[in-house]
Amino acid sequence: MTDFGFTDDQLALAATVRDVLREHCPPAALRAERRPAWDRLAGLGFFGLLLPAEADGLGLTLTDVLPALEETGRACLPGPVVETAVAAPFLVPGTPKLASGAVSVSVLLPGQTYAPDADLADLLVVARADGPRLVARESVRLVPKPGADPCRPLFAVDFDESEPLDVRVAPALRRATVATAAQLIGVARELLAVSVAYAKARTQFGAAIGSFQAVKHQLADVAVAVEFAAPLVWRAALAVDGSAAALAVDGRAAAAGRAASVGGPAVTVERDVSAAKAAAGEAAVLAARAVLQVHGAIGYTEELDLRFWLARAWSLSAAYGTTAVHRERLRTAISGGDLRRYP
């Protein structure tokens, strides 16, 4: 029976994360710290959520943690959160203490140009033509690359020593992409909330600017974009989780006799992942445009906390494949005849 919404448990997890981030990742922390709230999240077991029980994790699905990931976007949380909490469990699940948050991971997978937050990483997973390599902090040479987002620095990566990893990168890459889309939804929601608050408070021509129809309609358009991007992200998480389930079923020679009905073949999962990333990126970029227009010149300054969210909207919309790249994948898949809907 379809039940397209989050469970109380999933929402409770998100609420817990939100409370922690409100307290330990306020805007002031974004100016002062490279990795605020990290230890607190670790204390909650955040970095073990997707790890299997044998790696001290909770074995949750991406869907289970999606609302919590959205909260990390809403708070503009810095640090390699997606890489450590979402990608690493599918690349290096056996790493000791990964679940505890004591090990930070950055990744440089196909479609990424640079490794985000690699300055904080104890381990790097770098995809090479002959397969993924695991690189330890002491073997790596990082070259910082300029970017829009001061809280998500990018690095070119070079190294001599590394270990081969016997793992497919696609499961990690898909999840990191969908997790990033969830963060983008969170960023967009926060930008919208900030726009609304400012439009209520700021007066010009004797009225709150939020009473002018031009402002109302711009913000209504942002609300609509976010409202209809979010379900695509949820759907992509289900698809990714489902394809894992389907693989697991296949692996057991489909003993149960019933194919997973949610996850489709890989091409459909990729399609759904790209739909999520493109829509979430566009919603966040639209929200960034609107928040600047509503704020006027003041939005254009470093003094406002706003700039962190703006930068995050732009940096995440380019992360794990730009919107253009995902749109290209979508049209290839869809014009290739993949019009299947699930269920």
């Binding site: 919404g5 409202e227 209809f228 991007a229 379900p231 739909a275 829509a279 049209r331 898949a333 869809i334």
Partner: peptide, 25 residues
């Protein structure tokens, strides 16, 4: 034009998914 059509297809799918969420509520 294919890109524009694909975008519409995804948006129709988004509308469908959104409607499932609304139905649940």
């Amino acid at each position: 034009l294919i890109d524009r059509a694909a975008r519409c297809w995804v948006e129709a799918e988004a509308y469908r998914l959104h409607t499932f969420a609304t139905a649940r509520r």
